[in-house]
């Protein structure tokens, strides 16, 4: 019963996640730019614009220039997310690639620290949100919700790693079963069930939430338009 329920939910969440993001991307892609609105000084060629967007997406360049404190929190959180996701790859592929094994060994060697680098930035961003009056004023429930959700996912993950260890072989069997469409029984460790549930919630919530900034950043006209209005005539698609 538990297994059936979770197998179904997992597929459901993933379908929502993938379709939801595809719908958003489609919508962003087809909505026209009637006018040129690049934020200058802007690159005057395509290569420059690609670099500008990559720098914004990878190093949060604009944020670095505008607010070092938020940049620090944002960088730490995203980097931690990246490491955590990477360290989970071992549950999704078989055999586990050399590189991931290396990462795993490295992460093992630094111990609890890895949990801390995930939880600390979330705590920092939460406190900042509550502490700074003007940021508290503009925050909505969803902003706190996502931080709490991520925090709980991290906390349950740390609990499994250091305190209540699930049967990792059973976990991998379950996951690989989902991937190969031949469902296997769901591990019954309660912390794992919690962790897994929260992740499904995160996946299904993703496309409808502010997390869509992760794909949206690549579509931002103030950043991805080439500054060449005089050289190349821009035609408004709905006013030809």
């Amino acid at each position: 019963m538990l297994s059936t329920c979770y197998t179904f939910s997992a597929y459901f969440a993933i379908v929502i996640f993938v379709l939801g993001i595809l719908c958003k991307v489609w919508k962003y892609a087809i909505t026209p730019n009637p006018l040129k609105i690049s934020l200058t000084p802007a690159p005057t060629n395509a290569a420059g614009v690609i670099l500008r967007v990559i720098l914004d997406a990878s190093l949060f360049n604009s944020l670095f220039k505008s607010n070092k404190f938020i940049w620090l929190g944002g960088c730490a959180l995203h980097l931690a997310l990246l490491i955590v996701v990477a360290s989970h790859i071992r549950f999704f592929v078989s055999p586990v690639p050399e590189l991931i094994m290396l990462l795993q060994t490295f992460l093992q060697s630094i111990g609890i620290f890895i949990g801390a680098i995930f939880l600390a930035p979330i705590g920092y961003l939460f406190i900042r949100r509550v502490w700074v009056d003007r940021i508290r004023f503009v925050s909505i429930f969803a902003d706190y919700f996502i931080l709490i959700l991520l925090f709980c996912i991290g906390l349950s993950g740390i609990t499994m790693k250091y305190f209540i260890r699930p049967d990792l072989v059973a976990v991998k069997t379950f996951i690989m079963g989902l991937i190969s469409f031949s469902p296997e029984p769901m591990p019954t460790n309660p912390i794992f069930i919690t962790h897994f549930t929260l992740i499904l919630i995160l996946l299904a919530y993703f496309p409808f939430s502010k997390l869509i900034h992760s794909v949206g950043i690549f579509f931002s006209p103030t950043r991805n338009q080439i500054d060449n209005s005089r050289e190349k005539r821009h035609v408004n698609p709905w006013d030809r």
Binding site: T31, L63, S139, I140, K210, F219
Partner: peptide, 12 residues
């Protein structure tokens, strides 16, 4: 369309 969706209210 995009700017209504992507704000995370970071406060920058």
């Amino acid at each position: 369309k995009l700017y209504l969706d992507v704000c995370v209210r970071c406060g920058a």
